[in-house]
Structures are given as C-alpha cells and as structure tokens.
Design a protein around this nucleic acid. Structure first.
Lengths: 115, 115
DNA sequence: CTATTATACATTGATTATCTATGTATAAAG
DNA sequence: CTTTATACATAGATAATCAATGTATAATAG
C-alpha cells in the first residue's frame, strides 16, 4: 500500500498520541509499533516521525525526557500530557465524523450500482 | 466542528470523486452537496474547491465541460473518468485500512482503561 | 432604475506540512 | 574493522490548504 501524503498527515497525530496513551515511549520504538499495528502496511521513516514529535511537544500535547536505557543507549522518551489526552478525544471525534460522511457517500453510490 | 487542514486534505479527493460518481456536477453545487452530506459540518469555500477540481482534472480523474443551464447561467460540469473510478476504489481501500489501524489502537487503549 | 444578494468560476500568496536526503553518534555482530 | 541496527536531528525541495480578492451574471427588493 502506498498511502497518500495527505492521509499520512491526517493520521499522524491520532496515531502517535494513541501510541503514547499506552505509556511513554521513544522515537525508534514508536516507528516499530506503527509498523506492527498496521500489519506492515505503514513504515514510517525516522525523518518523518521526529518533526511530528517536535510539533506535538511545541503544542504541549506531549513532553520529552532523556533517559538512559538498560543497554546504555540514551533515548528521548515522550509522554502524553493531559492536554494531549483531550486532543486524542477530539481527533477521534473528527476522524469518525469524516468517516461517517464518507461511509454515507459510499453507501449512496453502491445503491446506485446495485439497486 | 473545526476539522484540521490535514483531515480536510485527506478527505477532499474521495469526497469529490464520490460526489461525481453520482453524476456530472458543477462546483457550486458540489459545495452544497458536501454541506448537506455532512449535516452542515463541512462548509467548503469556493477558493478551496476549484484548485482541487483543477488538480483532479490534471490527474485525468475528471473531465470538465462548459454548459448552459436552464436559467442561462454558464456552468462548468465535471464528470468522473474511468481512471477516476479506479482512483475512488483505491482511495476507499486506503482510507479503510487507516481507519482499521486507528480503530485497533483505540480499542487497545479503551481496554487499558476498562480492563 | 438601482442596490443587494445569490450564483458561478478563478487566481494569488501566506502559511504550513510532508518527507527525502543527509548528518551525528553508539552498540553489537561478524 | 566493517557492517548493521539503534537512536535522534535538521535542511530543503515539494506540495497543499485556504483566506483574500477579482470577475461576471441573474434574481430580488426597494
């Protein structure tokens, strides 16, 4: 699947916030989770993720903190804020509203063909 | 509802192509249909629509034709092409795939809260 | 006859976003 | 010691929205 830029853009915020809602996480692992979650359909490059994370931090939807991990590597852990949790809710509402509009349209069109 | 630019962007193509699948139509009426279809939630400005229509035409997903209407006004009617119909199918697949990823994520998170 | 509103299409420019390419750095594996 | 995986970051090309603005006609109201 070759998703359009605009669809990637529209999904990036709810996707990343949703993953962070499960607990604080760092960039590299977020990319892996996106891949796993989508059954390999979505493969984010690191150059795509970090600007989004920085943007979310600027919007105060996430906070970041440097941490040493077990293997000595330093990782920047991102955690969702209360504001971020509220944003998830709103993102979900918007997505579902748009989804229902499209579903309605698609059902109208399938009726045109089959009825 | 104040939809994000990215969500508007991601939906514009399937939305417009979907409306044109019901039959040829012109810009002003497409805007009205979007408003009706969304129950007043989506209100497209004309400055938003026409560049999208021109882009779709450039991509050969729609064709355009000037026509005189009953009341004497000249309108540019857009019609979906065979390529456009194929594009609808692909847009729909992509949207649904992304929708399922988000649904999966949301169900995981609701389990975290309630289970 | 004149003003206003609705209809109808179009473009410009500011802003914003993706995303490829590139850079730095460390740990592990071979 | 070379390669691969891990880990974060930015620059710059490209592309998109969308508000503002412009043109033009038909209908309505006064």
């Amino acid at each position: 699947m070759d998703f359009s830029k605009s669809l990637i853009a529209a999904s990036s915020k709810p996707l990343i916030l949703g993953i962070l809602q499960q607990g604080p996480n760092y960039g590299y692992d977020i990319i892996q989770q996106i891949k796993t979650l989508s059954g390999g359909q979505l493969e984010w490059a690191d150059g795509m993720l970090y600007p989004v994370l920085h943007r979310l931090e600027k919007e105060r939807l996430v906070t970041s903190q440097w941490n040493q991990s077990d293997n000595g590597r330093h990782r920047k852990y991102y955690a969702i804020t209360e504001l971020g949790k509220a944003a998830i809710h709103q993102e979900q509402e918007h997505w579902l509203a748009m989804h229902h509009v499209l579903e309605k349209l698609w059902s109208l069109n399938s009726k045109t063909f089959h009825g």
